[in-house]
Structure formats: C-alpha cells, structure tokens
C-alpha cells in the first residue's frame, strides 16, 4: 500500500518535472478565462474564442518550429521577416493565376529552402545561429522592400482563404495548431529522430558518441522549422482578404517569447511544443482580456509585461520546489 503510494507520488513529481510549465500555463489560462468571464460574460462567447484561438494560431504554428530549433540549442530571429516574404510569395502566386495548391505549397518549400541554407551555414561553418539569422533578417527585410515596393495584394481567388474556413465547426487555424502540436509532441517524444533533437541540444558530446550526426541533425531541425514557418505563413496570409506585403512588426519577438515562456529551455535540451502552443494562447488571451476588463489602453503593455514576468517567476518557483 505504502509502496503504491510512493510510486504514485514519484509518478506525480516526475509528471510535474516533465510537464510543470505546461500545467502552469494551462492553469493560468483557465484562471484568466474564469475571472474575465465574471467581468464580462461575452469573453467566453464563441466569436471571441475564435478571435483568441484562430486569430493567433499562426504564431503558435511558427512557435512549434521555433521550439524545435531552440531545443537543439539554436534560435531564429529572422522568422518575422521570413513570414513577410513568404506571405508575399504566396499572395503573388495566387493572383497571377497559379492553382491555389501551388500558392499554398510555395511558402512551405521556400521556407524549407531558406532555413536549410541557414542550417548549413550554422552547422558546417560553425557560426552561431543568432548571428546568421540576424544577418538573414536584414537581408530578407531589405529584399522584400526592394521587390514589392509595398503594394498590397488583393483579389485573391475564391477558395484561397484557408484560414477563414471551418471544419466540423472549428476554424482551420485552430485545428492546424492542435494537429501539429499533438503530432510534433508525439514525434519528439517517441521517435529516434525526436529524441535525437533533445540530445543535440542537451548534451552534444553524448549525442556524438551515441552515433548522432550533429551537423546533419541541426540542418534537419532548421529545415523542419522552415516547414512550420511556411505553414504559419499560409494561415497568416489567408486570414484576411488583403495581404500587406511588409514585415509584421516584432513578430520574431512574439514567436520567441511564446517558445521560451512555454518552457523550452534556451540552453537547449528540454521543453515541449505543447508548452509553446499554450503560451501562444495565454498571451493572446491576456491581450484580449485586458481590453475586456477595460484596462487603460496606455497601461496595457505594462500589465502584459508584469503578467509575462509572473509566468516566468511562477515557473522558476515551481522548478525550485521540485528540485529540493
């Protein structure tokens, strides 16, 4: 009996260690929803949930890719610029008469190509990813302006607007976020490749001795991240009837924040994509709830900052309790 209890306890603390941040985020989301719906019951209305979940799913999908990258000990600060470039490619193809599936596939392929190149420079030339992607950000941003000159893209064909569709009563972006989160969570915890990602970031020496090709591993992680940037772009570009062909301001910070607050260790080696997806939703919900409870718009960002800081400190407090 006693033994059984101890086992349970062990299981519980293991669970806390492994998924603690996810639980903190989930609890925060639930508390937020309960409290804010007391103030204004419309907060939990179907339309508002759609705005929070579906309207921000593209950030979550990009954060999945970012999490994979960060787990291997790398980072990508060019993600916002790349989404801007890929959205322009996607929209331009759609209005120049190419079939819709071509317009949808192109951002994924270009995303993979660009990030594979970054991965190759990082892995084989030994330049830290933050440096290469800082450079890439500059190149993509300048390139986008030179090419488009800032024209908006309108008149996309019927059927292009994937992110506006419902499937079984749920918006496609939310479905995509849930699907890819579960898929990548499963792959990363249950396949050799997935576990090798954690090894590359957590303990490269051990990974090398156990026969993992570190360089190839990093390139593949970048390529997979590129694919998710492409997928994120499709949700981004098909949400409205117009595409603004500029770089969305500060998007890279939003995506990186979602990943690291989601529990992905910046030192590499730990974290899950469930955490980053929950963090995306939490931030979106905070942004929306501050409007719902009528916080003065001037103080909105300060309160957002305090709440982010609280999430971070809550996680640290939890970790300390688990360790001691």
């Amino acid at each position: 009996m006693n033994n059984q209890y101890e086992n349970n306890n062990k299981f519980f603390s293991r669970f806390l260690i492994n998924y603690g941040q996810e639980l903190v985020l989930l609890a925060s989301i639930i508390i937020l929803f309960v409290v804010v719906s007391q103030v204004n019951h419309r907060f939990l209305g179907g339309n508002n949930l759609n705005t929070i979940f579906a309207g921000n799913a593209y950030i979550g999908v990009a954060a999945i890719g970012m999490s994979i990258l960060i787990i291997t000990g790398n980072i990508d600060v060019s993600v916002g610029a790349l989404i801007g470039v890929l959205a322009t490619i996607c929209g331009t193809l759609a209005v120049s008469g190419y079939p819709i599936w071509v317009a949808w596939t192109a951002p994924i392929l270009v995303g993979i190509a660009v990030n594979s190149l970054v991965g190759i420079i990082v892995a084989y030339a030994g330049i830290p990813s933050i440096v290469v992607t800082l450079g890439m950000m500059s190149i993509l941003r300048g390139g986008l302006i030179s090419v488009t000159g800032g024209d908006w893209i309108t008149d996309m064909p019927e059927g292009f607007f994937l992110a506006q569709q419902d499937f079984m009563g749920i918006r496609v972006p939310l479905l995509a976020l849930i699907f890819f989160t579960i898929l990548m969570f499963y792959i990363m915890s249950n396949t050799t490749w997935g576990r090798s990602l954690y090894a590359i970031g957590g303990n490269p020496e051990a990974a090398r001795t156990s026969g993992i090709d570190l360089k190839k591993g990093v390139v593949i992680a970048f390529a997979v991240h590129g694919m998710f940037v492409g997928l994120s772009t499709i949700l981004f570009a098909t949400q409205l009837n117009i595409i603004q062909s500029t770089v969305p301001p500060n998007l890279e910070l939003t995506v990186i924040t979602a990943s690291v607050i989601g529990g992905v260790s910046i030192m590499g080696g730990t974290g899950t994509v469930i955490g980053s997806s929950l963090a995306t939703i939490l931030f979106a919900a905070i942004g929306s709830s501050l409007i719902f409870i009528g916080v003065s718009a001037y103080w909105l960002r300060a309160i957002m900052g305090i709440l982010i800081l609280c999430t971070v400190l809550a996680d640290m407090a939890r970790r300390r309790r688990v360790v001691t």
Binding site: T257, I266, S296, Y298, A302, G305, L309, V312, M316, R320
Partner: peptide, 25 residues
Amino acid sequence: FKVPPLIATLATLALYRGLAEGISQ
C-alpha cells in the same frame, strides 16, 4: 531567481516599454 537572461530580459523588454507608455500617456 535563476531565470535565463534571454527569458528574463524578454519579459522586462515588454515591461519597461509598457511602463514608458503608461507613464507618458
């Protein structure tokens, strides 16, 4: 609090900018 610098300063990046906005109205 042993928060990694990148995470700590990402959070205060939002906080300090927010304070600047709030104080200045």
